[in-house]
């Protein structure tokens, strides 16, 4: 599987290093590699190309790192932060980045980060706690515990919030699962459910299963995913004590 990579970095030598090492590591897995030295160039490239992975520097000239995080994690592509500011690592993970690569970085460290595109989360990493949604005028940041579940909609997703509101996210359900698996379970090919939203599981006639939610609604559970859901609920129950 090949993909499109975007490097957003204003330091020429760092951009050159990222580009050189990424090409070296991924080789023919990269179908296109784009370089953006500033925010405007990055925005243009994202809007005009199907970008799959973004390597993002949080210290672009004249930009606020927090705003960059919100903006880029709301995109369909996965984000890996490459930054000197290690103090922002936790914040980055809470926004759902795949990895945080501190500068200076070696080839091995970058290779490890890029590998997460295929094998995302590590159990001991901070869970994603906030999701940024693009709006017409900017970004809405929503806490993950305020989301009941995500519903797949073609290449995109819809988030059902506890408040009853519905929000649209450009990431596919698969990519959301990559960054949300610590607190969400994929119960169906079209549903990714937040652990706090699950009230109970019910078996129906014909070996079918349903999941009752705290808001009174029910969602179907895929036949092949029943064990996975039970296992996740059991693991969370253990964590909850």
């Amino acid at each position: 599987m090949s993909f499109n990579l975007l490097i957003v970095e204003d330091e020429p030598l760092v951009a050159k290093r990222l580009s050189r090492l990424s090409t070296d590591i991924l080789d023919d897995q990269i179908s296109a590699l784009h370089l953006a030295p500033d925010l405007d160039a990055a925005r243009n490239l994202v809007s005009s190309n199907p970008i799959d992975l973004i390597l993002l520097d949080l210290n672009l000239v004249g930009s606020d790192g927090f705003e960059l995080l919100k903006e880029f994690t709301s995109k369909a592509a996965h984000t890996i932060v490459v930054s000197a500011e290690t103090t922002r690592a936790l914040e980055a993970f809470e926004f759902g980045v795949l990895d945080f690569v501190p500068k200076p970085f070696t080839r091995d460290r970058l290779a490890k980060a890029l590998a997460r595109f295929w094998k995302p989360a590590f159990a001991n990493e901070p869970a994603t706690r906030q999701i940024a949604f693009e709006t017409g005028t900017g970004f809405d940041v929503v806490s993950t515990i305020d989301i009941l579940y995500f519903k797949g909609a073609d290449k995109y997703s819809e988030a059902m919030l506890k408040s009853g509101a519905v929000k649209f996210h450009t990431k596919s359900l698969n990519r959301l699962e990559d960054i949300l698996s610590a607190n969400f379970v994929r119960s169906h090919k079209s549903y990714l459910v937040q652990r706090g939203a699950i009230k109970s599981l019910r078996s129906l006639e014909g070996s079918r299963y349903e999941m009752d939610l705290v808001d009174g609604n029910s969602l179907p559970i895929g036949r092949t995913r029943v064990d996975h859901v039970r296992h996740a609920i059991s693991a969370w129950g253990g964590q909850n004590g």
Binding site: E11, R20, A84, E85, P104, F105
Partner: peptide
């Protein structure tokens, strides 16, 4: 200062290798 030092070190790594 992280921004200056770490970017400088990253640049250095690149020069060392290239």
């Amino acid at each position: 200062q992280p921004h200056f030092l770490m970017n400088s070190l990253t640049a250095l790594m690149e020069w060392v290798e290239t």
